Simulated scan of single mutants.
Amino acid sequence: MLTLSGVCKRYPTGDRALSDIELSLPRGQITALIGPSGAGKSTLIRCINRLVEPTSGSIRLDDTELTRLSGRELRRARRAMAMIFQEYALVDRLSVMENVLSGRLGHVGFWRSFLRRYPAKDVTEAFRLLERVGLSHALDKRADALSGGQRQRVGIARALVQSPQLLLIDEPTASLDPKTSRQIMRLIRELCAERRLAAIINIHDVALARQFADRVVGLRAGRIVFDGKPDELSAEILTTIYGEEDWDTQADHERDAPSKSKTQSHPALMSPISALAALSTGSTR
């Protein structure tokens, strides 16, 4: 479904963010991008939807060569690629429902959205999605009155109301506590399975990548250094991706954490807002 071939990104300063990326993603697969800060994970996601312009290489979504598109053609192609942002990119003064419906901007146009004149079928779908993500009780709440987990659920519903084929997800759990992080990742996985959506998730939490992804791609210094199944992430491979660390001790800690939690509880680049606007208008500058 999605194929990247020889994708490179070099900035005017001469810094190379991505080098010769080769990646194919089939429909319905959840791929986690892991790697140290500065490895190129966010850049890779943004090159796919052209929020960042790749310097060279090919990016194909089905039969469409994305790197050759501009203007209206690019806006049309972006309808098939929905992005979920780390910092949510919600409009705080708008209600939950209004934020979700903003995901239809690429379909209904700016003025219909501005005047809140959405087709009835879009409103019905927004209601259905908010119920699915557990926010049917908060339709009229302002976005700035929500918790971090709730805001991320609004972002997920907004992405899905776009009716995409591909989800591009940038650090969905970075600002969330461990329990909420698992809930959000579980929700993403369930929704992808229900809709047979492919997803690429930039994520720092290796444990979550292991638990919820079908495939893990490790980046280091802009290059893919690992591409395989989550259960293949050995200490040696983690060292290749991140550098030297006592990964066996870390793995023991991750295994112990769930049982400890259970015992305690029982019994007892571009800003997200700018990026969202760019996705709606087709401008990346």
Rank of each mutant, 00 (worst) to 15 (best):
S5K: 12
K9V: 15
T13I: 14
A17D: 00
L18T: 06
D20V: 00
L25T: 11
L25A: 05
I30P: 02
T31C: 08
G38Q: 04
G38V: 14
A39S: 14
K41F: 11
K41L: 11
P54C: 07
G57S: 10
I59S: 01
D62P: 06
E65Q: 14
T67R: 10
R75S: 07
R79Q: 11
R79I: 13
I84H: 04
I84A: 02
L90T: 06
L94N: 02
V96F: 02
E98H: 06
L101F: 10
G106W: 03
F110R: 15
L115S: 05
F127C: 04
F127G: 05
E131F: 01
R132E: 15
V133M: 03
D144I: 09
A145Q: 10
Q152I: 09
A159S: 08
L160I: 02
T173S: 05
T173I: 00
S181K: 08
S181L: 00
L187I: 08
L187P: 08
R189G: 00
R189M: 00
E190M: 01
E194G: 02
R196L: 10
I200N: 08
N202H: 10
H204Q: 11
H204A: 07
Q211K: 15
A213E: 12
A213H: 13
D214T: 07
V216A: 03
G218F: 01
R223I: 05
E232W: 07
A235R: 07
I237W: 04
R255P: 10
P267T: 00
P272A: 07
A278S: 13
